[in-house]
């Protein structure tokens, strides 16, 4: 993944999860059943909105830092993929777990969240540790 593509996709991720926030506000305003009456759904859609948006911003920061730190291309492309994939898995995992959930817990799609978190965390660790001289 090129630096430009990463930056553009990161901005798209931010836009998508900001749009989710608008959707949530609209559901509140319209007092939609299945949203107002469903605390688990409310909580997990909020978590998806917040985490997805925040990790989109982290991706923008990663895209900028990869250039500044002159991270080798072989690592940089994988860090970009892991960071972007992590943001999507975390955000959509929360949203999916909240949309289809059981009586007390989120649905099985919530299991995507830890996978995404591992990828996002690994990308940040790699960003911090990999030097320009590393091949």
């Amino acid at each position: 993944m090129s630096a430009e593509t990463h930056l553009r996709r990161a901005i798209v991720v931010i836009a998508v999860f900001l749009a989710v926030g608008l959707w949530l506000e609209a559901m509140y305003g319209l007092r939609l059943r299945g949203w107002v009456d469903d605390p688990i759904r409310r909580e997990f859609l909020r978590l998806g909105h917040a985490h997805g948006g925040l990790l989109g911003l982290v991706n923008v920061a990663i895209a900028w830092a990869l250039e500044r730190l002159a991270t080798p291309a072989l690592w940089a492309s994988r860090i970009r993929a892991a960071a972007l994939g992590g943001a999507l898995l975390v955000g959509l995992g929360f949203v999916g777990g909240g949309m289809w959930h059981g009586p007390t817990d989120p649905g099985p799609l919530i299991l995507a969240v830890p996978a995404g978190a591992f990828m996002a965390l690994a990308s940040l660790v790699a960003l911090a540790l990999v030097r320009p001289s590393d091949r």
Binding site: W75, A115, G116
Partner: peptide, 18 residues
């Protein structure tokens, strides 16, 4: 070789979890 190491570091934990 280093491409595999990078992928293992970045995607391995997530794949194991999945």
């Amino acid at each position: 070789m280093s491409g595999r190491v990078a992928s293992m570091w970045l995607f391995g934990p997530a794949l194991l979890w999945g």
